[in-house]
Design a protein around this nucleic acid. Structure first.
Lengths: 231, 231
DNA sequence: GAATTTCTTCAGGTTTTTTTGACGTTTCCC
DNA sequence: GGGAAACGTCAAAAAAACCTGAAGAAATTC
């Protein structure tokens, strides 16, 4: 799952885009100003930066320069319509692409995909134990046998794989996987999905090795599989 | 892999474009002046020439004339924005297309692909199972029998073939096949087309092997045909 | 300008996924 | 042990995703 940092200070756009991108299977973080953006880039490893040209505390160019100076993180600018100057500047600063507002979400997604592909940021295969996830084909296999996951099961697994070793709280998971449209879902939905996922990917679903419960805190996908259950 | 010669003397552009094109799977050589360009064309066989109109040692037209005089190498001009005169001259000289700066990398890539296809410089025959697509003649056959596809059906199939193995989301397909002109189409249009395409190219349309549905994620064209469906 | 083909949409059906609520089990603390 | 919270299980209801056939628009062809 590719991580995108969206830097934009129009709340409506943030909300809308966030939902769309999550729906398309991206992991989205947001920042609303230059400072936040730079801090986020420093702290976390993103695969792509979606950068509004006009921010309250200055323009996006500064952010782009800073980022490009210290990494090869791909950048897509969001520009106001017909703002030729920004386009030129953006591309000069090494941005990979730009898109003018108003844009169709679909088109943006397609641009994002294209840029990610071009920059080789699309991680193709994730593995843990005898479980293999081919993210290009959306193909999950366990010991060579294909596991047929539903869309949400797949998304959940992907999120775990991209946060190996971290304990993910129930809330965090509900937000990331379900909150795409801003709705709330029953807390138990997550529990059910964990169960289903375990049934499909664990060797012994009653005694889960891959997705472990950390009582009171959440769930975690074992970074490396330790020998025994209990500690 | 198609070989492109990029003739341009702005170092930044060269660097940027080079990276983009390489990222998209092209082989790129560069030349910064008329002389270099002509020498390169003589010495190596390219599939396409990307030619800046304004070069330090004269304009790109001379290069174009020379090249067109002795070969059928396709040419795309890079022109300064709004420079109508160059556009006309370029096309008069037999150039296949032009694009004005500043341009979106993605757009250039799509133009390049389009020109290559038009000029038959791209892979001519695509195959899967007993299905053969001759992209030069736009001829599709299944087990020797011709399939009569409509323009959109053909475009859809081609897109699948060029993205073998990838799961393509409905949005992505709508964007690529339908949304090019900015219009929206009903989501079901895609569904209907998938059905029609399957009826024409699948051995058993009820049980599609070539274009598979990945519920919740999209469709995919199997890059190798696996034995069975469900397990 | 009528006929034909292609494209798009609609309405309805089928299947699968997603969500939920009721109830069981484990864990922890008093 | 009793009780409360956290987590697990199950099955049924609700919703979404996908498929299908037909019919109205739009474009092409003759």
């Amino acid at each position: 799952m590719e991580k995108i940092l969206l830097v934009e200070d129009d709340k409506d756009i943030v909300e809308n885009l966030s939902a769309v991108l999550k729906g398309e299977g991206f992991s989205v973080c947001t920042a609303s100003g230059q400072k936040d953006a730079l801090k986020a880039v420093e702290q976390e490893a993103f695969d792509l930066l979606l950068l509004d040209v006009s921010l309250r505390d200055g323009n996006g160019f500064a952010v782009c320069s800073a980022v490009k100076g210290s990494s090869d993180l791909p950048v897509i600018f969001l520009t106001a319509s017909g703002d030729e100057y920004s386009v030129v500047t953006g591309l000069d600063l090494g941005a990979e692409d730009y898109i003018s507002k108003p844009f169709r979400p679909r088109e943006l997604v397609s641009r994002i995909r294209s840029v990610l592909r071009r920059c080789g940021k699309t991680q193709a295969v994730l593995e843990i134990e005898d479980l293999r996830v081919d993210t290009v084909r959306a193909l999950v296999t366990k010991g060579g046998q294909e596991c047929f996951l539903s869309a949400l099961e797949y998304r959940l697994l992907l999120f775990f794989l991209n946060h190996k070793g971290m304990v993910l709280s129930r809330n965090q998971l509900l937000e990331e996987i379900w909150d795409a449209a801003g709705e709330f879902v029953n807390d138990n939905t997550l529990t059910v999905y964990i169960k289903r996922l375990r049934e499909k990917i664990e060797t012994d679903p009653q005694n889960p090795r891959i997705i472990r419960t950390v009582r009171g805190l959440g769930y975690t996908l074992a970074d490396e599989v330790r020998k025994s259950g209990r500690m």
